[in-house]
């Protein structure tokens, strides 16, 4: 029985609770239990980080320290959080001065980070802790060749030397899982490009352009759906298809990886929160 402390980040619980639920159910199928991190705070990615590096270090450091106190490794399911925690862990592990400064603040709550905790992203759990063989064995209702494209997310895969999740220029984990579950994984132009999500708070127009560019590249491949591994990306790729500047073309359903894998493992749709997906994913589920 493997255990991880789940850090959901700010966005998932409110905007994508189905993702949170499906992660828990699907991982449970493989014998992995998740404990919710209580009393957490925002990791500070992007916004606080831009304003004060030390504040950001303290906020993310606290999350690492909490996990250390719980004696469990962290599972991150949002790309931005995964990126923050992994890079900040790397920095704290190598910068004694910063570590000292952060621990000084944490000490006031009886917390301390010493480097014992590992931070993993959902994709790593699938590849390393579960393994493709186990996934293959657990498939009871395979898809019938439906064409799907994977979107990995920038902060999930980069910078490669630090996060070490997948090959940053040619990521394969989601594609492999699509194939194992009976789908057809389809590549597209600009697969590793950003979805535009981080730009939303600064210039929504540019964010929309970037997201739409991605959708159009995927549309050129005639696929039935997009599979994601980050809450932010999932929301962004959905939003650009629904918002004011969306094109008139048919919308491509966007779905998170565990929501996609669940039905193949025999999990029923409602526990995966499928009906909450804003673009109807019937096309995927019937494939």
């Amino acid at each position: 029985m493997k255990e991880f402390v789940l850090y959901t980040g700010c966005t998932t619980p409110v905007r994508l609770p189905a993702y949170e639920a499906s992660v828990k159910i699907v991982l449970a199928k493989f014998g992995i239990t998740l404990v919710d991190m209580k009393d957490a705070n925002c990791c500070g990615a992007q916004y606080v980080e831009s304003v004060s590096h030390t504040a950001f270090a303290a906020m993310t450091g606290r999350l690492l320290a909490i996990a250390e106190k719980m004696d469990m490794d962290i599972l991150a399911i949002c790309g931005a959080c995964s990126g923050s925690m992994k890079t900040m862990k790397h920095e704290l592990d190598n910068n004694k001065k910063l570590l000292k400064e952060v621990n000084e603040v944490l000490a006031e709550e009886g917390l301390k980070y010493t480097g014992k905790v590992e931070v993993k992203h959902l994709l790593q759990i699938f590849q390393e802790d579960i393994g493709y063989a186990a996934i293959r064995e657990a498939i009871v209702r395979p898809y019938r060749g439906i064409r799907l494209s994977a979107h990995y997310g920038c902060h999930v895969t980069r910078p490669e030397e630090i996060v070490q999740v997948d090959d940053a220029e040619n990521p394969k984990i989601i594609d492999k899982i699509i194939e194992i579950a009976g789908g057809t994984a389809v590549d597209y132009v600009g697969k590793t490009r950003c979805c535009g999500g981080p730009m939303l708070g600064i210039d929504a127009e540019l964010a929309g352009k970037i997201g739409r560019d991605k959708i159009e590249n995927i549309r050129n491949e005639n696929v039935e759906g997009i599979i994601t591994a980050c809450a932010f990306c999932d929301l962004q790729l959905t939003q650009v298809q629904i918002g004011d500047d969306a094109s008139d073309q048919d919308k491509i359903p966007v779905m998170t990886l565990p929501q996609f894998l669940g039905p193949a493992l025999g999990v029923n749709f409602s526990s995966l929160g499928i009906e909450l997906n804003r673009i109807n994913p019937q096309a995927i589920l019937q494939g």
Binding site: D39, A40, C42, T54, A55, E109
Partner: peptide, 26 residues
């Protein structure tokens, strides 16, 4: 929605720490 999915509804975010950090670093 969360309740229907079987997820806990009290998200339990800590807001004391950030206030402290804001004072000290921002």
């Amino acid at each position: 929605d969360r309740d229907d999915l079987g997820l806990h509804t009290d998200l339990g975010w800590n807001n004391e720490f950030v206030k402290k950090i804001k004072k000290r670093f921002i």
